[in-house]
Design a protein around this nucleic acid. Structure first.
Lengths: 318, 318
DNA sequence: AAAGGTCATAAATCCCGCTTATGTAATTGA
DNA sequence: TCAATTACATAAGCGGGATTTATGACCTTT
């Protein structure tokens, strides 16, 4: 339980003492001289002891005031410093939280460009699936997959979360050799699926007129926890995975992945979203990132854009 | 030029953060929970970043809030400490400023009794002639000789500043031997006066029907700067000095000084006063000293009081 | 469910802190 | 010596931020 004098009065005193002038203090504080005089007097009355001697039209510190001053100045200094540090750090460090998948297949490749454009910013990317952390101040912005109606967050749709089977060209060729013709959707239940237990296979079969195969759910396979890993497995020739075309454009273009049924793209009813606390939307670093990301998305969405011209030849695991 | 957030908000945040509860903070600050909530929110909006995560009906600190807390707590601690120290010091140290004369002839002897009665107080006596220093906070109370109408000070009359010639008994005896009869006021111009240039001699002559003696002013003598020193000189047998009976009662009673004309006491029109800043009159230490001093004076003023029963045998020079 | 706790929010109120305006005293400069 | 200037004090009144009251939503506990 603290027992402090009114802080406004303390503040006025500190400024007056430091400046050795009520008038100067008033200017510094953006007040009138009368206000400072009032506050100082109030503090003196509260203490029951004078802080200034008024003589010859000047205000000089009493010994008591003199003893008090340095401590108070330091205290205000550290308060100021605390907030200044916070402001600086907050201005110069952009923290992005995103899913493993998006980080790995898309953002990691392109964040460099953003960094180049904003050399004064330190950019930190963290992968996690908690949306709470942007509200908790752990991150400035979040990129998440979902329905996009998170309460209390401003969400910008980045792209639809569609999916279609993909595999390495070799894998597809081998499969076609096996069955002696070009692949059809109905062949998929018998192909080697990386994660056959994935519910979305059922969805895809349904969308493509293939009878649901209950048995798939019991078939052994690997849960790779996220699409990024499944994609890599597919590129390694381990079978078919359901992947989001948008995220693997580069690998498709480079021939590391192939899409056997380009017309058969299913939607999850989800999308990827850029989410941010609305009250921070105009904070410079947030604004810059938001504008940059949406601009890049815009460009990537245009039909004849070679979005992945500069994409590296392989996905780097961190 | 400082740039601080509103201190009321900072204070509310600090309490809330320290208590990890708005409600508890409100209790501590003597406010309602709503007030704390309001202030915290205001601070968060000002910073543009959340300080608390509101979850499950509780408020938990964000990393930012967590970083801020210790600095702010410390800052408030030191402000509190500064004023607490001041309060303690101010409560436990009584500083009295007085004239050399009064200190030497009266107060120094009796301050011990006050100290004994108030062992918790540290008592400091300083001699100086500046009345300003009580206004300037250098001293809590002042004892001064003068007309007693100092503006802005509460003044209690202690005793009238009367004076009459005194000398050591030996000195008087020698003088009477020289003139062959008992001394009369008219003999004084020819006696050895310690400070013949003192204007008050003229006053005393006038009051006692002795013709003014211009010549006295040009007669060599010693200026001893204050009555205490003149009194000591008189006791040492160096001649006659104009002294205040009240201040030398003890020495008279002990036979170190004698008053040749007890009926011929002149008044300066002055008095000795206890002066103190009215706003501090009820501060405990001030109140105690004031009451003690006035009580002692009261007692000393009563006719048949042996005021100096316990007076030491000699005046001690410090 | 009901009870009891926490924080958020809206609206109304209060009072503190501020400004304006003026006074006083000391200093400066002609 | 007489403005002119500067600094602080003081009174009065206002404005709006701080606070309270009242209510709601949400969670935990029993």
């Amino acid at each position: 339980m603290r027992r402090l004098p009114p802080l406004a009065a303390v503040r006025a005193f500190e400024a007056a003492a430091r400046n050795e002038s009520f008038t100067a203090a008033a200017t510094e504080l953006g007040l009138t001289q009368a206000a400072v005089s009032y506050q100082v007097k109030a503090l003196e009355e509260r203490l029951g002891a004078p802080l200034f001697v008024r003589e010859r039209g000047r205000a000089r510190l009493t010994p008591l005031g003199h003893r008090l001053l340095p401590t108070l100045s330091q205290a205000f200094d550290s308060i100021e410093a605390a907030f200044a540090t916070q402001r600086e750090e907050d201005e110069s460090l952009l923290t992005i939280t995103t899913t493993h998948t998006f980080a790995n297949t898309w953002l990691a490749w392109r964040l460099g460009a953003f960094q180049m454009a904003h050399p004064e910013l330190a950019v930190r990317m963290a992968t996690s699936n908690d949306l709470i952390d942007v509200k908790a101040g752990d991150a400035d912005v979040a990129i998440r997959a979902g329905p996009g109606n998170w309460p209390g967050l401003e969400c910008h749709k980045l792209f639809e979360s569609e999916f279609t089977p993909m595999a390495s060209p070799e894998c597809i060729a081998a499969e076609e050799r096996k069955i002696g013709r070009k692949l059809q959707p109905s062949d998929m239940p018998n192909a080697h699926l990386i994660n056959p237990g994935d519910d979305w296979w059922q969805q895809w079969f349904c969308d493509n007129g293939v009878a649901a195969v209950e048995e798939l759910l019991r078939r052994p396979g690997i849960r790779l926890d996220n699409q990024a890993n499944e994609g890599h497995a597919a590129m390694a020739g381990q079978g078919f995975a359901l992947l989001t075309p948008f995220l693997w454009k580069g690998d498709v273009a480079a021939g590391r992945l192939a899409i056997p049924f380009p017309q058969s793209i299913s939607a999850r009813g989800w999308a990827y979203w850029l989410c941010l606390p609305p009250e921070r939307r105009m904070v410079p670093k947030v604004k810059r990132f938001r504008e940059w990301l949406l601009a890049v998305m815009e460009e990537a969405g245009r039909p004849n854009t070679a979005d992945n011209d500069t994409a590296p030849a392989a996905v780097m695991e961190s």
